Amino acid sequence: MQVILKQDVDKLGKSGDLVKVADGYARNYLIPRGLAEEATPGKIKKLEEIKKVEERRAQKMEEEAREKSKLLQGKQVTIRVSAGEKGKLFGSVTNAHISEAILEQLGVEVDKRLIKMEDPIKELGLYPIKIKLHTNVEVEMKLKVEA
């Protein structure tokens, strides 16, 4: 029997997958617990349409990420902070600070959760940062921290 999974099921598949299982397993376990529904031709067609829409949306998001990457790749952003003697900062530079600086200086909005740094920035200097705009799109930039 073919069923469409409504939820992720271990060792069987993810939500939205069309899988073939034993009749008893489907009727006695998957369907009564709301984990799956019987795959009728209408439901299979609807599932295929949903997957096409999701695929187009994912493709559009990747294209937008590639356009952003062209604007950001290899650029440098400068952040001015208050620092003590020997270049030590009072606090540290956070992803939110970097995101704001990119928006102000380059005019590109970047979510702070996408910014990856190797170590927290607590001194003046030049630092490499990576921004993961999409699963396939990653940008490298320079961050200059000055007093």
Rank of each mutant, 00 (worst) to 15 (best):
Y127T: 09
K116M: 10
Q59A: 15
N136C: 00
R113V: 06
V145G: 07
L133T: 14
S99H: 02
P41N: 07
S92V: 02
E62N: 08
P120M: 04
K45M: 01
S15T: 14
E37N: 06
E67A: 13
E140L: 12
R66E: 11
I102C: 09
E104R: 09
K68V: 08
N136Q: 15
Y29E: 14
A22Q: 09
G74M: 04
R66M: 10
K6M: 15
K51C: 05
A65V: 00
Q105C: 05
R66P: 04
V137S: 09
K45V: 01
Q76I: 14
K60D: 13
G91E: 01
V81T: 12
M141W: 11
N95H: 13
Y127D: 06
E62W: 03
L72S: 06
E109F: 00
H134M: 02
K130E: 15
G107T: 02
R80C: 05
S99R: 02
A96C: 06
K86L: 10
L18D: 07
M1R: 01
H97M: 13
F90N: 02
Y29G: 11
L114S: 15
K112S: 10
F90K: 04
E104T: 08
E38T: 11
Q7K: 13
I50M: 04
R66F: 07
V137Y: 05
Q59H: 11
H134L: 04
E85A: 14
K14R: 08
G87S: 03
G13H: 00
M61T: 12
I102G: 12
D111G: 05
G34Q: 05
K130M: 15
T40D: 01
I79R: 12
D17W: 05
R56I: 04
K86H: 15
K70A: 08
D119E: 15
G107R: 00
E54A: 11
K52G: 07
G74F: 08
G107Y: 02
A65N: 03
V3A: 01
L126Q: 14
I50C: 03
E38W: 07
V77F: 09
S69G: 04
Y25S: 03
D119Y: 14
